Simulated assay, not measured.
Amino acid sequence: MIVNPIAGIGGRLALKGSDGDLAARALAADAVPLAATRAAQALAAIGAPVELLTAGGAMGEALGGTVVYRPCETSSADDTQAAARAMLEAGIDLLLFAGGDGTARDVMAAVGESVPVLGIPAGVKMHSAVFATSPRAAGALIADLTRRGRIDTVAADVLDRPAPDAPPILYGVLRTPADALRLQPAKASPPADDAAAIEAACRQVARELAEPGVVGVIGPGSTMRRLKALLGFDGSLLGVDIVDGGSLVAADADERTILSAIAGRDARLALGVVGGQGFLLGRGNQQISPAVVRNIGRANIRVVAGMEKLVALPGNRLLVDSGEPELDALLAGYLPVRTNGGRLAMTKVAAA
């Protein structure tokens, strides 16, 4: 087990990752690291005896097991790679890491395809196909592997954005355990005709958000950016924007700004769907935190997605990975999705 202690640390602050100086900015703003907590959730879900090797300090020592590598006081990508190589030399069966796409790239650089790898989603973006859908799914998958006594693997794409506003690109592959439902696919680009097909659906939601007295929290993504354009402003592609009566009041808002805007108000939450993966929450929109969702309420969530995107979803379901299992369970069930021609498609929502 390798934990990237700064993975995802800026998510609720509306930062787009932890690369470069973003982690330092998040720490200066008293952001709370979550990667170790998500790693512990995965281990707790295994429920079977495993021999655990870890890196020292914040990179996993508190999880128990045998420390095989000690990082510098402030860990770096070099420490992730060195820890991965030390574990490979120790003869591991599976390399488990808690982090995001950047951590996956570091692991790939260290071990290549020489050992199966499984990611516990703890970053902001997580476009790659090496991650379980949630920490609990990672633990359940490992429990199955221990019962079977073998690991069947598939090649999984490692994707990352070279810059916050750049499209994700393919850096290589890792071998991951074969599991169609517990592993998330790589993020897919929207179909070429998706934007035109959901024009009517976006207009329906735009009219609702433009009603006097309604505060709208609009998530990231190309579909939501189209909705923002219909409301009359050039919205952020990767950020969460807030409107009041249809007028922009906050762009690229963080969790604190969103909570302040919706306090005591009639609020709506508009979300798109991550193509190829089906995530509503927990991928690139961590500023829409459990506290935000609870304040807005399940009944006030509006989802927009093209029919092609919906029918291509693995397991024909939408996924939520909010970080709080209780909230994920509350959101599970069926939600109406506004789709092609403004029609409604009742779509299953499941905890990741």
Rank of each mutant, 00 (worst) to 15 (best):
M1C: 05
M1T: 13
I2A: 11
A14G: 08
L15R: 01
G20N: 01
G20V: 07
R25P: 08
A26H: 07
A29Q: 14
A36K: 11
A42V: 08
V50Y: 13
A55D: 03
G56D: 00
A58C: 14
A62K: 09
V68T: 13
Y69C: 06
E73M: 13
T80G: 03
A82F: 03
L88F: 07
L94T: 04
L95C: 14
T103V: 10
D106N: 08
V107E: 08
A110T: 02
V111E: 06
P116D: 11
L118S: 08
G123W: 01
K125F: 05
H127N: 10
A132P: 10
S134P: 06
A138K: 01
D144R: 06
L145K: 03
T146S: 14
R148Y: 12
G149K: 15
G149F: 10
G149I: 02
R150T: 15
D152N: 15
D157V: 12
A163S: 08
A166R: 14
P168S: 04
L170H: 11
V173Q: 15
R175D: 08
D179M: 11
A180L: 14
P185Q: 05
A188Y: 12
A197Q: 12
A200V: 12
V205P: 10
L209H: 07
G221T: 00
G232T: 09
F233I: 04
D241G: 02
D244A: 13
A250N: 13
A251C: 14
A253K: 08
L259T: 10
L269T: 00
L271V: 08
V274Y: 03
Q277A: 02
L281N: 00
R283W: 07
S289P: 12
R298C: 01
A299P: 10
I301N: 04
M307T: 14
K309W: 01
L318K: 08
G333W: 09
L335A: 06
G341C: 04
A352S: 07
